[in-house]
Computed example of a mutant assay.
Amino acid sequence: MAEMSFLPAADGPGALAARIAASLAARSGFDAAAKLRLMAGGRQVGWLPRGHAGILRGFGAVLGPEQPLADGSVGVALLPGCNGFDARSAMLRTLARQLADAGHVRGWRDELFAVTAALDAPAIAVVERAAARFLGLLTFASHMNGIVDGGSAGQPALWISRRSPAKAVDPGMWDNLVAGGMPHGSDPLATLVRECGEESGIPPELAQRAQAHGSIEVLRDLPEGVQWEQVYVYDLLLPPDFTPRNQDGEVSEHRRVEVAPLLAIMSAGAMTVDATLVTLDALRRRGWLGAGEPD
Rank of each mutant, 00 (worst) to 15 (best):
A2R: 13
S5D: 15
S5P: 15
P8W: 12
A10F: 15
G12W: 08
G14S: 11
S23R: 14
G29F: 04
D31Q: 14
A32M: 14
K35F: 08
G41I: 04
P49L: 09
R50K: 11
H52L: 12
G54H: 08
E66R: 07
P68S: 13
S73L: 13
V74A: 03
V76H: 02
V76P: 02
G84F: 05
D86V: 14
A90W: 09
L92Q: 00
R93F: 09
L95Y: 01
R97H: 09
D101I: 06
V105Y: 02
R106V: 12
D110N: 13
V115F: 04
A117D: 03
A121I: 07
P122N: 13
A123K: 05
F134K: 00
G136W: 04
N145E: 10
I147E: 04
V148S: 03
G151F: 12
S152F: 15
S152K: 09
A153Q: 12
P156C: 08
S161K: 06
V169D: 08
V169G: 08
G172N: 02
L177H: 00
A179N: 04
G181S: 11
E195M: 08
C196A: 04
G197K: 06
E198Y: 12
S200A: 11
R209Q: 10
Q211E: 14
G214A: 09
L219E: 02
R220S: 06
D221P: 00
L222E: 04
V226T: 05
L236F: 05
L236N: 00
L238E: 04
D241T: 10
N246Q: 11
E250P: 03
V257K: 06
E258T: 06
A260N: 15
P261C: 11
L263H: 01
M266Q: 05
M266G: 00
V273P: 01
A275N: 12
T276C: 06
V278Y: 05
T279I: 04
T279E: 00
R284P: 02
G292R: 04
